[in-house]
Computed example of a mutant assay.
Amino acid sequence: MPETSDTSTESGLDAKTQRKVVRERYASIAAGKNEAESDCCSSDDSCCSSAETTAPTDETARQLGYSKTELESVDGNANLGLGCGNPQAIASLDAGESVLDLGSGAGFDCFLAAQEVGKAGRVIGVDMTPEMVEKARTNASQNDAENVEFRLGEIEHLPASDESIDVIISNCVVNLSPDKPQVSDEAFRVLRPGGRLAISDVVLTAAVPDDVRADPDSVASCVAGASTIDGLETILTDTGFESVNIAPKDDSDEFIRDWDDDYDVSEFLVSATITARKPEVGDE
């Protein structure tokens, strides 16, 4: 599996170190050392449910956009938390479509997507942590998800063929990448003409305090590696995407402010929906 180059990142860490701390956190969660954590976070003061809980509360699920029906429709422990949004709410999936989930974790969003695309569709989850991929595959068996598969890989180097995907989803994972332009390029490559992005993630609204920016725990817990809205718009547009729209979630401060014990991170971070479209043939 190729390694991302040692380049500068939004965080205060070099790319190699950033990837290492993120992979270690995900591996720890997958190993069951803290089952209350979310797919995007892994400390008890970060972006989701606290260590005292064993499942996300109905209130947290409501804030992030999941319905009670969605939460009850997936068996097993695929839902390790709730990330920072619900990409299903913006994906508008149709029966028969192919879906790729960037940073699929234990598979929760993949299983929800599979219900939408039906047996004629397919869902691929990609995660860079072997322990998480193994957990997701176990969950797939428990959910009889025959149209879902999980692949080990980096979102900067997607294990998917060119123009094979209709929709890319992701939940609070792109912010963890040290090379977001490469993520955008790869997403563009694997999408079919007319394919679309439907991503929930966090974006910066102000500068991150220097000590937070350089803290590995803050990077791995979705706080210090986020981009600005303008920065993400530029990345996606430069790649070739059109109809780029990044919409902050106005009430995300209700849950974001609790992600860190020392800072109110809602002062510089907000959850957002990120949508874009690859041009149809002839539109480019």
Rank of each mutant, 00 (worst) to 15 (best):
F268C: 08
C47V: 15
G103E: 09
N86G: 04
L158G: 01
A27T: 11
N77P: 05
A89H: 12
G125Q: 02
L102T: 06
E24I: 14
A145V: 12
D261T: 14
P181Y: 02
L269K: 13
L197W: 08
D217C: 08
K68L: 09
D215C: 07
I199V: 13
E24Y: 08
A120R: 13
T273Y: 14
L13G: 06
T57I: 04
V133D: 13
C40A: 14
S177W: 01
A114K: 02
F188Q: 01
E10W: 10
G103A: 04
D45R: 13
S5C: 09
L232E: 05
E242Y: 09
E116R: 09
E156A: 04
P178L: 04
I165L: 02
R257C: 14
T17S: 10
L112S: 01
D201N: 07
S227T: 15
L191Q: 00
P279V: 04
A27W: 03
I29A: 11
D185N: 07
V265H: 09
P279L: 01
E280Q: 09
K119G: 04
D179H: 01
E163P: 01
N139E: 12
E154G: 10
E35P: 12
A114R: 03
S67R: 03
T275W: 06
E131R: 09
S8F: 05
T275A: 11
S200F: 11
T53W: 15
D39M: 11
D253R: 13
A27E: 14
S11V: 08
A224W: 02
C41P: 02
I168S: 01
N147F: 01
V22A: 08
F150D: 07
P209I: 11
S252R: 07
S46R: 05
V173L: 03
L13P: 08
S266K: 09
A207M: 06
E254P: 12
S170E: 02
D14R: 12
G225A: 15
L13W: 06
Q182P: 01
A220N: 11
V133I: 15
D101N: 05
K68Q: 06
M128G: 07
T53G: 09
K278W: 09
R213T: 13
N34V: 10
D262P: 11
R137G: 11
T205S: 06
I274D: 06
D264M: 07
D230N: 12
G195F: 03
N86L: 00
E163S: 07
G282D: 00
P193Y: 02
R213M: 07
S271T: 15
P209V: 13
R137Y: 05
P178I: 07
E35F: 10
Q88M: 15
E134N: 13
L82T: 02
I235R: 04
L100Y: 10
L236M: 14
A30H: 12
G125Y: 00
G105F: 07
K20I: 05
P181N: 00
L204R: 15
S164A: 04
N245K: 15
H157W: 09
M132E: 10
C84Q: 04
R19C: 08
I229H: 07
D179I: 02
S200K: 06
E134G: 13
D230K: 12
A89K: 14
D6N: 15
T57W: 08
G125F: 03
V174C: 01
E284M: 04
G125E: 00
N147Y: 00
F255H: 14
D144Y: 00
